[in-house]
Amino acid sequence: MITYELCLLLRVMPKPELTTTLKRAAEAIFEKGGIIRKLENLGTRDMPYKTSVHGAVHKKASYFLYEFNAPPSSLETLLDAYSRDVDIIRRQIYKKKAIEPFECTLNDEILPPAYRKDVQELISEARKLEKPKFSYNSGLDYYPFQK
């Protein structure tokens, strides 16, 4: 089961209207057979860039975050439903990421180039392309190829 994050930018409006919009957005998820894990208010603030939707230019928005589970096939219709909602300025669905623990490789990356593993691999790759060369100490006392 994949957990998704839905970032909603809502038009600035009074509280009762805001709750109905949030409920509408939530019910759209429930209709698709999904469940909501979390609803977070990220605050109302100036948007980094102005957006014009539904015939109006918005410079401020209320940010909300839903965490939900829903069938992956329903995401497209969900976003389409939100795009027709007049109160929603912007919507985006991301997968909730789970990153496996990793080691910091900075120490190997700041070594001089000759000691770096990726550089050594590059050199060995380039060596493979080199044409075979005649070695003069092979016992032949003449050069066997055209000069």
Binding site: P48, C104, L106
Partner: peptide, 22 residues
């Protein structure tokens, strides 16, 4: 490190498309 740089770059692009970041 290259892993963290890749993560930072991906997250910045995600934030910008979500309308969180300039």
């Amino acid at each position: 490190c290259s892993t963290q740089q890749k993560l930072v770059e991906a997250e910045i692009v995600k934030a910008q498309t979500a309308g969180l970041m300039a």
